[in-house]
Simulated assay, not measured.
Amino acid sequence: MDETCSLRDEYQQTIMHALWLCNQAKSVWKSELHFSELYKIAHRSFMDLLDSIFEQGSSFSVTLFSTISWCLWQHKNKLREHQSMWPLQEISRRAKELVLEFFEIHQRPSNPVRCAPFVKWSPLLVGLYKANFDAALFDNNELAGLSVVVRDSSGNIMGALSQKIARPQFVEHAEALVARSAVTLVKELMLFQVCFEGDC
């Protein structure tokens, strides 16, 4: 089959010609019956043709039409650049295979969503302590802030720390520094049964 278009010089800027009216394009579309029937209608533009496709009311037809159109466009570009491409007579079959694969994948039942177990807050047991720590990097200067607060099971503050340091290169570095400061503060307070909690 001759894969060049004898009228391409006259119609080279027309999408309607390149993807629908060109004899090579027709040979692809007419291999699909539900698209072949559309040649009985005089479409004024490619958008007019698209309206007819959407009126068919089938998502499969719309997807197949889009895929074949894309394949034809690729075919013409690769032909012009002398690149390897699918033969015209295989475009319809291969496009349909792509669409069927797409629908098969997207119609598979998804894995059931596992809901996270409900977590209810509860206070610390008597005799336990919690150390909360966080780090913040400031955009307007080269500083970072470290803060730690230690509370007992009743929420009373046993100790706290807040300091500014030279801004580390990475956020992870700042988080590691504030975690170390939390451990140091707890040791200085002579506390042993401590739960540490940070945002990192």
Rank of each mutant, 00 (worst) to 15 (best):
E3V: 11
T4E: 15
C5L: 01
S6D: 06
D9R: 14
E10W: 05
Q12M: 07
Q13G: 11
M16E: 14
L21S: 11
L21C: 15
C22T: 06
N23K: 15
N23S: 13
Q24F: 04
Q24R: 08
A25R: 01
V28L: 04
V28G: 01
W29Y: 04
S31E: 10
E32I: 11
F35R: 02
S36N: 07
E37T: 09
L38P: 01
K40R: 04
A42G: 02
H43N: 02
D48G: 15
L49S: 07
L50E: 08
D51P: 00
I53C: 00
I53S: 01
F54A: 10
G57Y: 00
G57E: 04
S61A: 14
T63M: 12
L64Y: 01
F65I: 00
S66M: 14
S66V: 12
I68L: 02
C71I: 10
Q74S: 11
H75E: 00
K76W: 05
K76A: 08
L79V: 07
E81L: 07
Q83F: 12
Q83G: 04
L88C: 00
I91E: 03
A95T: 02
A95K: 03
E97Q: 11
L98W: 01
V99D: 00
L100E: 13
L100K: 12
F102C: 05
F103E: 14
H106V: 02
P109D: 00
P112L: 13
V113F: 02
A116W: 04
P117G: 02
F118G: 01
V119F: 09
S122Q: 15
S122C: 09
P123I: 05
L124G: 03
L124I: 06
L125Y: 12
G127Y: 05
G127S: 06
G127N: 09
L128N: 13
A131M: 13
D134I: 09
L137I: 07
N141R: 04
N141D: 07
L143N: 04
L146E: 03
S147I: 10
R151L: 10
D152T: 05
N156A: 13
G159H: 08
S162G: 08
I165T: 03
I165A: 00
I165L: 02
A166V: 09
Q169N: 15
E172W: 11
A174F: 00
A176D: 03
V178F: 01
A179E: 08
A179W: 06
T184W: 03
L185I: 06
E188T: 14
V194S: 00
D199A: 04
C200R: 12
